[in-house]
């Protein structure tokens, strides 16, 4: 089963409000989707039909664009996004173990979100910081030269941050 908890139904009023601002624009779909995602945190599947109606597209076309781009998500995401590097340099310096430790700590698989909605775990092909290998990012912060205890410390910082 999906580990994400049942969240409250997303507020589609926000979507309507965003749509109203894109009424007369010619190719509004992508900026509009970005704004919806910024506002709600993800693009609720229920929002696809109103968005399609507002932009004069078929719902399947909106779905096509959402699923084409990596940047769009249709499930709720955690408050913090953990991105573990799976690039070559990190791999030879133990990246696989780092990923395993993160998984153990958060008790989720790649692409999943913790039940308390605090963390979403993702992997990336390369963070571009090979000199810090093995590396990971949490939100917009880089953490390098990782070892298991350090990983635990870092995650703990974010775990407490919300309380």
């Amino acid at each position: 089963m999906d580990k994400t908890v049942e969240t409250a139904k997303p507020d589609l009023k926000q979507v309507d409000e965003i749509l109203s601002r894109y009424q007369d624009q010619k190719w509004p779909l992508i900026p509009l989707l970005q704004e919806v995602q910024d506002e709600i945190g993800y693009i609720p599947p229920e929002a696809i039909e109103p968005i399609a109606r507002g932009t004069g597209l078929f719902p399947v076309q909106v779905q096509g664009v959402i699923t084409f781009y990596e940047q769009f998500h249709t499930t709720p995401r955690g408050k913090n996004i953990v991105r573990v590097c799976r690039g070559t340099a990190c791999h030879v310096r133990g990246g696989r173990t780092i990923l395993k430790i993160v998984k153990q700590n958060l008790d989720v698989e790649e692409g999943e979100t913790t039940p308390d909605m605090n963390f979403t775990l993702e992997t990336v092909p390369c963070l571009g910081t090979c000199f810090l290998a093995p590396a990971m990012m949490v939100n917009k912060n880089y953490y390098g030269k990782l070892a298991p205890p350090k990983v635990r410390n870092i995650l703990q910082q974010y775990d407490n941050a919300g309380d």
Binding site: P45, P59, V60, Q61, Q63, G64, T67, F68, Y69
Partner: peptide
């Protein structure tokens, strides 16, 4: 009718219905 459109990208793309 708008019943189908490509879903996903690259190797996993395929014609699909909504959801």
């Amino acid at each position: 009718q708008g019943a189908i459109e490509y879903i996903n990208r690259g190797f996993t793309s395929k014609p699909a219905t909504l959801n």
